[in-house]
Nucleic acid binder design. Sequence first.
DNA 1: CCTATAGCCTGACGGC
DNA 2: TGCCGTCAGGCTATAG
Length: 265
Amino acid sequence: MPELPDVETWRRYVDATSLHHRIGRIDIDAPRMLQGVSRQTLRARLQGDAFESTTRHGKHLFLRLESGPWLMLHFGMTGRLNYFKDPDGVPSHTRLLIHFDNGFHLACVWRRRLGRIGLVDDPASFVREERLGPDAYEPGIELAEFKAMLHGRRGSVKSALMNQRFLAGIGNIYSDEILFQARLHPRSRCQRLDSQELAVLHRAIGHVLRIAIERQADPERLPQSWLLVNRRERGECPRCGAPLAHMAIAGRTAYYCPDCQREQQ
DNA sequence: CCTATAGCCTGACGGC
DNA sequence: TGCCGTCAGGCTATAG
């Protein structure tokens, strides 16, 4: 689930649950998920420390330790967090388990091991090194800058939106929603968008992300007028009722309404 | 630059 | 019911 709204929701979850508790034991079962840090080092740096704040860039979540460095979590396709007390309540597929001195635990859970766990000195440096684009939501991109970013870009709008080095945080699902609300066909070319279309797209990005975060990225709570609520085989367009279509774009399945999102000539 | 493909992982689902 | 292929809200390496 983890696109920007989900990760932001978990960031707030960490803020509400896991700050300022002394960290005791650490259990790590994350082969091939550790990025630039060994099990031993990760364990040694976390034990006895405490999280003091969080930040997020795109789909990356950072938890700051009192001693300075930040725990970095990337959720891949299946990652999630769970803060709980019952010692028998460890979720299956917990890859990193943090025990706090208040008797609670924070489980970092990935069903598929496609996520990342790291320890970084500074999120801003990490973002630079990974060459991630600006966060798609905060602090917000001015329309003029957005137009400049897309100017001269080859390829489809959908692949640009999903490219983390262009804009960080948007994935397959939310790019479909943004294109639906902007009434752009997912195969639309960046270069072919006129000023009006760019403005509508820019607004749709901000709107979709804001509402999704407000609703805690919970599909049950998202507006029924959204594509992603009906985004499935044989789903219908919430606006006009037409059967949704899908096609492969940039290696992912794009859903769209063939009536509301007409392809450019 | 950009696209397409395979691969990394694991479980759910549909068809037979 | 069981087996098997396919697919999935991500990303990287590779080749063209």
